[in-house]
């Protein structure tokens, strides 16, 4: 029974109910950090950390949170974890922290985390909520990584900062700028929806 539930959580968050392309949540950071793969990975790690632990905390406290102010309580829990992420990044990866700038802080208002806390952690046991946090974090991450690879490859001819395409390649600088982000995500959503038969 338990194993079945866990499996459903994962398949739901990675596929049918993927936070990015099915629910269109957390788009801000999806677009903002995907111009370089390295930043994307750091961002994803931060998000998985925050979602899973805030889900766990909310779930542990769910009996004691008064329903009227639950949004505020959830926001504060999330913000505390984001501060941890921010401090750790500043200490160990100062360059990337500089480049990500405000987007680390904006994990707080990333609707995925709030959404999972509201929809899942408030009504499920801690263990399962923790896994749900990891699963939706992963669902978010792999979409971001795909977009980041496309953008970095076409925009700078490199992956992970290493030149992959040779001299013959002309960089599409539009890809690392704002419009490229919108177009790549739109095409990604198109492809995914096209692959799914029904609806």
């Amino acid at each position: 029974m338990e194993a079945f539930k866990v499996k459903r959580v994962f398949s739901d968050d990675l596929g049918a109910n993927n936070p990015v392309f099915a629910q269109i949540l957390g788009i801000c950071s999806t677009l903002a950090v995907t111009n370089v793969l390295k930043n994307t990975i750091v961002m994803c790690a931060g998000l998985i950390f925050t979602t899973s632990l805030s889900n766990l905390t909310v779930s542990l406290m769910r009996e004691y949170i008064p329903p009227r102010i639950r949004m505020m309580v959830e926001t504060l829990i999330i913000a505390s974890y984001v501060i941890i992420v921010d401090i750790v990044l500043k200490a160990y990866l100062p360059d990337i922290s500089q480049q990500l700038g405000p987007y680390v802080g904006l994990i707080i208002t990333n609707c995925i985390i709030m959404g999972r806390a509201e929809a899942f952690a408030l009504s499920n046991p801690p263990g399962l909520s923790f896994l749900d946090g990891i699963a939706s974090g992963l669902g978010y991450s792999y979409v971001l990584i795909i977009i980041a690879v496309v953008r970095e490859l076409m925009g700078s001819g490199s992956i992970w900062g290493i030149k992959v395409l040779g001299e013959w390649w002309t960089n599409w600088s539009i890809m690392v700028m704002a419009p490229g982000a919108f177009f790549v995500l739109a095409i990604f959503i198109w492809v995914v929806k096209g692959m799914r038969p029904e609806e």
Binding site: F183, A186, I189
Partner: peptide
Amino acid sequence: VPKGLAGAGMALIIAGIMALAFM
């Protein structure tokens, strides 16, 4: 609009074109 693009997809493409214009 092509079926897969209806809704969010198309909105993102419009936003992309607007971003181009704002550039």
